[in-house]
Amino acid sequence: MRAAVAMLLFPILVLAACQREERDTRPQSALGSGEQPTPVTTLEPGGQRASASDNKAASFEANAFHMSEGKRLFGWFNCSGCHANGGGGMGPALMDEKWIYGSSMESIHATIRDGRPNGMPRFGDKIPDDQIWELAAFVRSLGGNAPSSAAPQRNDDMMVHPSENRLPDAATLGKSP
């Protein structure tokens, strides 16, 4: 009897494991349009102003799917043309979180949407809002601000050495083949 119950339970548990990860690929209008203004500085006469927060920031930040989509868009829209894979070139480096216009999701979103002085173009009408949030989530992960279990991996061609399974083994290391 107990065996029969166990045999029934097992497939139910196995089937329960088939649940698929939910991915939001349609814009979530319930979260707002992301059109709210974001302050450039926290300096305010008469004390600090609470920084604006956006509902979308929380749902995109540290989300593995959105960050990987952001990585793809970062390449597609030629962000590397100025920011060189995050290392910086004509544009500033994105590798730490001490940024001129703030490193919060909202600030990065505003930077991409509205542009910044001295070269950052505004992409507000060229990239749909959700895709800007995806880019912001990815850019934040570049500076190590996303959990490593969710952040997209560096491309193979940017690794300092080949992956472990492509390295020569200890016996042949240092000898020519």
Partner: peptide, 12 residues
Amino acid sequence: QGIKPGSHMPVV
């Protein structure tokens, strides 16, 4: 995204 969910064409 309704016709081909997950495709890289975003909703504009």
